[in-house]
Structure formats: structure tokens, C-alpha cells
Design a protein around this nucleic acid. Structure first.
Lengths: 249, 249
DNA sequence: CTAAAAATGTAATAAATGTTACATTTGTAT
DNA sequence: ATACAAATGTAACATTTATTACATTTTTAG
């Protein structure tokens, strides 16, 4: 079953699984982490941190949705990850002793717990398992970004859109159980799949007409998983897309 | 000076700096690492490890050139990094406890030192600084891949080519002091910049006619850095390209 | 050294995507 | 509730890139 569930495959290949960071910790260790939490809220559109800014700590998202992007020379933004409930972020710059390499902005009202640099580094030193987990996660993230590179560099717009719709839907599932569908702005969705807004619109329309998705005002819902996967399959041929039995949600 | 040297900027943004891994180690620690080396050679075209294979250890390249790529659904390969002298590789899968997520293949005769999984994990446990460095490197690599995503997703073929020529040239500089120019196969270069071989050919021809590069049989040499940078600049507008004084090599 | 295989160069054509321009809808602040 | 701003939808057209199809060169195996 494991390898025949395409959704699970997607999660393995395109999800950071940063909620896994706190697994295998003792009650006491979890409490020690909790005690260094400083609750903080971000309104839609406000930024958790800025490219080139000096890192001050990390954020554990309690609830919300944020996009992490790079400003590519020329002014465009390229989103390369969407974080939500349970995700930890902001540790890359901190660990690499560099400035933030990217910007993180709330795309929905976000409640987070901030851990200061000092406290976070202390926790890492005092809780060996945490450091192990972080190391493991960083190594996993490498694979996720490598996968993303492959898709963005080699796949046509429609395939990229189909894939990211499936990925983003999972993210929204975690965020709010998909109550309101996928509500990414067209701008953000375009910057996620590496296309222009207008061009994305064309693909969305095509998908809608083919009955793969439905759109009510802004919200996108996937209405036909089989055929959405078929788009991936048409131009892909890996073992991952073999069965289509269990991709209904 | 630091921020005004575009080549240095490229190195920071697109180089893993994995040679930095062994910095700040004591003589004794370096020796401990050395003593677990098992020399191994790879002929051009042979593989250090395979996607989906079970990780057995890590490789420290003594001399040579290898490409790391993913097989993207559909059969194409997407190269996302080129490793050379002094680079350590193979630790991602090992640390994330996953199978190899990518394939690494020698594109030139490569001499490496292998460290078995067991030994490597032992070294990490016994040499705290090594683990710190690895953590730091992984965090840095994240930024490099994010940069790569931005370029591949947002830039036109000519910009991607210009940029990767500059990056790859630095890699060859480290490999053999650029003795024979850049000798990547057209196939590999295309898979690095995310283009087809034929389409790459057109861009190369254009660059050649404009005097940016010269091509003798297979080898590419950059002949005009200013104008190659100008291609990046035309479509980019970051602080990185401000001065062009010191980009002559 | 030679023949076969692989890699490379090139051009015409097709397809995909970006650009421009504007109409329409939705969201927001007063 | 209204008016303005922002986001979205859409279409014509331009540009970029992929595809197809060979000729030519280089490399490799025997």
C-alpha cells in the first residue's frame, strides 16, 4: 500500500515533515521547549522575517499559513514552500550563521510561538535528540528542494500546476481541514509554479473546463483526482503513478 | 569589496562550500577522520550511488567531477549540483534515514575517499565540531537550492545559461584550474539549466556569435565576463550586479 | 586503424508561455 | 453603503522554447 498511494508519495517527496522534529522527546524535554515559547501573532500580509535580515530566532506555527519566498533578481518572487500548523521555520539562517536567505510572509492570520536564537541554541545543546531530529529534517528538506527543482525545471506549466494543486491541497488540509478549499491568490499560485499570473489563469480555466477543479470566486477545489493525476502521468512514467485506486480522498 | 564582487556573490549563493566541513578541527580529529578513509576510484560514467539505493556511507572527493541529479518523472534527468575536489557527498540520505533521493555519477575520472555509514556516524558522535559544521552546511545548502529554484523557475533560458556558465566555470577552476575550459557535455549542460539539448545549442551559438564565449570542440570558455553578466543584469536588478569593475578573472 | 555508436550542430515548424491591454469582480476603508 | 483600490478573467499577439529531422563531428570498441 505504501508505495501505491500517490498522495503519500507526494507527501514524502514534497513535504518537509517538520512536525516530526519534536518526536521522541521526553515529556520533560517538551516542557523545556514550551517554556521558551513567546506567543506572537501575524496578520495577513505581515512578515515573520525578511531576506537579508539578521536572524533572531525560530518560529513554531500554531495555526496559520505562511509563504516562504526568494526575491529573484528582476523583482519577481519565487515561493518555494508553504508552511502551516506545526511547522518550524527560521532555523536555516540561524544555523548557517548567515542572514535570512528568504522572506516569510503570513498569507493567512498566523499564530506562532517564537523561540529566541539564544534559547533555541541552548535547547539544541541540551536536548541531543532535538539536534538529531533537526539534522535529519535538514537532510530530508534537501531532497524536497531537489524534487522541486526537477519539477520546475523540466515540467510544463500544466503538470506543475496539477502537482502543486495536489501538494497545496494537503497543506490546506492541515491548515483548516480544507474547509474553504485552496484560497491562494492567483499571484501566489503563479509564483509557486513559476508562471505568470495570466498564463496560470489559462491553465486554471482549462482545468476547470475539463472538470478537474472547481472555482468559486477565489477558492479552488479539486473535483477529480484521477484525472488530475492523469496529467502528471501523461508526461511522467514513474512507479509512483501506477495505481489510481486509492487516490480518492 | 565583499558585496561588490559578483563572482563572490555567486559563490555564496550557489556553492555548497562543503570543503568548509573540516574547518576548525584539531589535528588529531582530522587524523581520526583520515583513518576511516577507504580510497575508491570511479571511471567516467560510473555511479557513486543510485536513486532509491540504500545508503552505505559518504564520499569525500579528492579529485574529479561528479554530477548529482534526479530522474524526473518522464525520464529526463535534472542536475542540481556538480561536485568536485574537496566536496563531501552522500550524507543526506544517510542522515535522513531515507534511501538515496538522487543519483551521483562521475563525469570525469574521480578519486574519492569513502567513509562507511558506521564510521561516519561514529565520527559525528565523537567530534562535536564536525556535527556542528555539518548542521551549518546543511542549513547553507538549503539556501543554495532555494536560489536554484528561483533561477530555474523564473529566468529565461539565456539568463539561466549565463548564470550556470559562471557557476560551472568556478567549479572547473577548482577541479583543474580551468585548464581545458568547461567540458560539460551538451546533454549535461542542458539538464543543468533545464532546457533541451537543441535549445541549449541555439543559446550557445548566440553567445558565441556575440563574443561572450568561445567554443573549441567541446570546451567552452568565457571570453567576456562583463557582457555575460550584462545578460543577468538586463533581467535582474539586484544590488549584486552593481559594480562591474572586479569581475575580470 | 577502422567501423559503429554517440554526441553535436543546425534549421524548420509546432507548441507553450509571456506580454500587453482592458473588462470585471472582489475586497477595503471611510 | 459607497467609492476606490486591488485582484482576477480574458483575449490577441509576440516571443521563447520544444520537437522533429537530419548532417556532421567526435568518441569508443574491436
Amino acid at each position: 500500500m505504501k508505495n501505491h498511494d500517490p498522495i503519500r508519495y507526494l507527501k514524502n517527496q514534497f513535504d518537509f515533515k517538520s512536525d516530526f522534529l519534536f518526536s521522541e522527546l521526553s515529556k520533560e524535554e517538551v516542557n523545556r521547549i514550551r517554556s521558551s515559547f513567546e506567543p506572537i501573532r501575524f496578520k495577513k500580509g505581515s512578515k515573520l522575517f525578511y531576506e537579508d535580515g539578521i536572524p533572531t530566532g525560530v518560529f513554531l506555527i500554531e495555526s496559520g499559513l505562511t509563504k516562504k519566498f526568494k526575491t529573484v533578481m528582476g523583482g519577481n518572487e519565487q515561493i518555494f514552500y508553504i508552511y502551516t500548523n506545526g511547522d518550524l521555520l527560521g532555523y536555516h539562517a540561524l544555523l548557517s550563521n548567515e542572514r535570512y536567505q528568504d522572506t516569510c510572509e503570513a498569507i493567512e492570520e498566523t499564530k506562532a510561538n517564537f523561540i529566541s536564537k539564544e534559547n533555541f541554541l541552548k535547547l539544541l545543546d541540551n536536548i541531543p535528540v532535538l539536534k538529531e531530529n533537526l539534522l535529519r529534517n535538514l537532510a530530508h528538506e534537501f531532497g524536497v528542494l531537489a524534487n522541486t527543482i526537477g519539477i520546475l525545471a523540466q515540467k510544463t506549466q500544466n503538470v506543475r500546476l496539477a502537482l502543486f494543486l495536489l501538494i497545496v491541497e494537503e497543506r490546506y488540509r492541515k491548515y483548516d481541514h480544507l474547509k474553504g478549499g485552496i484560497r491562494l491568490s492567483r499571484f501566489d499560485l503563479a509564483n509557486l509554479i513559476g508562471a505568470t499570473r495570466e498564463s496560470l489563469g489559462r491553465s486554471l480555466k482549462e482545468f476547470k473546463e475539463k472538470g478537474l477543479i472547481s472555482i468559486e470566486s477565489k477558492a479552488i477545489r479539486i473535483t477529480n483526482y484521477e484525472r488530475l493525476f492523469a496529467i502528471l502521468k501523461r508526461e511522467g512514467s514513474n512507479q509512483m503513478w501506477l495505481n489510481e485506486q486509492n487516490l480518492r480522498r
